[in-house]
């Protein structure tokens, strides 16, 4: 039993970081906005890492899962607002719908794209977000390019005051829980057969097959898990925090780029990486947008190139090899 617990030690630094963020936001006035942004980046990084980090496959269309998650929550609220007495239950329905929609989309995309390897996979996914956006706009699904606005409905169901505290505080707490849950699932995968299978297929897919690993099954598992968390992040950080959804905003490839930067910066495939990457990226973006507005990408693009060429392991990857053999190694993976 004791051994079972030590397996989960690496969650300690992750959860400590999240607790610290929460306390900073709660106790230092004016910090909550920054903390909320950092939580969003950490959650998105944790979610994306389950696929990109663990399989080594690059999904350029990842933001599409956040987008459909946003739509899931938005559709639940806009369509069910008239039902009396649903109260907070509508948000639970929204989460279920968000999960369902991101699962379905990931199964559809995965069924095609995961048959393909490496570069071909990346090419297949690069159009997913755009494709889905143009489907919604072109066929005028879910109000087409006009999007959905549901501030009024949210006020109507929850009351003005509760709705406002949901948008400015509770939604961020939910993001915190989603990030923590994603970290737990990541570690659970790492410690189980799934993690071993994913490592093997990331390193050498053909050899993994010959070793008896059903690579398709494990790739799809990671893909769907990662997409579900993306759906939850979208439903919370986008739909609940800002109660509207416009197709060009929630299918913007920019967010995929941010997720990639966070995962790489922190260390792809590590547990602590997305937290470290999310914090470094979020804090630098926040201060860059104050001191050098409009220059964030210009600064981050060469940074990614430098990381890829010189530090492909990322911050946590380097920490991991530095601490090898010491007591710290049990906590940093």
């Amino acid at each position: 039993m004791k051994k079972e617990i030590t397996k989960y030690y690496p969650l300690i630094p992750v959860f400590t970081a999240y607790l610290f963020l929460f306390l900073v936001g709660k106790n230092i006035s004016g910090m909550w906005q920054l903390v909320a942004m950092l939580l969003f980046y950490c959650a998105m990084g944790q979610a994306f890492n389950i696929f990109l980090g663990m399989t080594g496959y690059v999904d350029f269309g990842y933001v599409a899962f956040m987008g459909v998650g946003t739509y899931g929550m938005a559709l639940a609220i806009t369509n069910l607002a008239h039902i009396e007495g649903l109260g907070i239950g509508i948000i639970i329905i929204g989460f279920i719908l968000a999960l369902l929609m991101s699962t379905l989309l990931s199964m559809a995309v995965g069924a095609v794209a995961l048959r393909l390897r490496g570069a071909y996979f990346a090419i297949a996914t690069i159009g997913v977000n755009e494709g889905f956006r143009f489907l919604i706009e072109g066929a005028r699904i879910w109000n087409g390019s006009e999007g959905l606005i549901f501030t009024a409905q949210l006020n109507q169901i929850l009351g003005r005051e509760a709705a406002s505290s949901l948008m400015t505080y509770w939604a961020d707490i939910m993001v915190l829980f989603i990030a923590a849950l994603a970290a737990f699932v990541t570690l659970f995968y790492m410690r189980s057969k799934i993690g071993y299978a994913l490592t093997a297929l990331r390193e050498d897919e053909d050899a993994a097959k010959v070793m008896g690993i059903n690579v398709t099954k494990y790739k799809i598992t990671a893909f769907i898990t990662s997409a579900c968390f993306a759906g939850l992040v979208g439903a919370t950080s986008w739909a609940l925090k800002t109660p509207y959804v416009f197709p060009p905003e929630v299918f913007e490839i920019h967010y995929t780029i941010e997720a990639i930067i966070i995962v790489l910066l922190g260390g792809a495939g590590t547990l602590l990486g997305p937290v470290v990457g999310g914090l470094i990226y979020g804090i630098s973006k926040y201060y860059l947008s104050i001191f050098m507005p409009g220059f964030q990408l210009l600064i981050f693009a060469p940074i990614i190139i430098i990381i890829i060429v010189l530090f492909p392991e990322g911050v946590v990857g380097m920490l991991k090899s530095r601490t090898k053999g010491s007591v710290l190694a049990r906590f940093i993976i």
């Binding site: 080594g56 496959y57 690059v58 780029i257 990639i260 790489l264 060469p302 190139i305 890829i308």
Partner: peptide, 16 residues
């Protein structure tokens, strides 16, 4: 390097 590296490098060059 693994495919991941070249994909992300060319992507970043584009952004740059």
């Amino acid at each position: 390097a693994p495919e991941l590296a070249t994909l992300l490098a060319t992507f970043s060059i584009g952004i740059l």
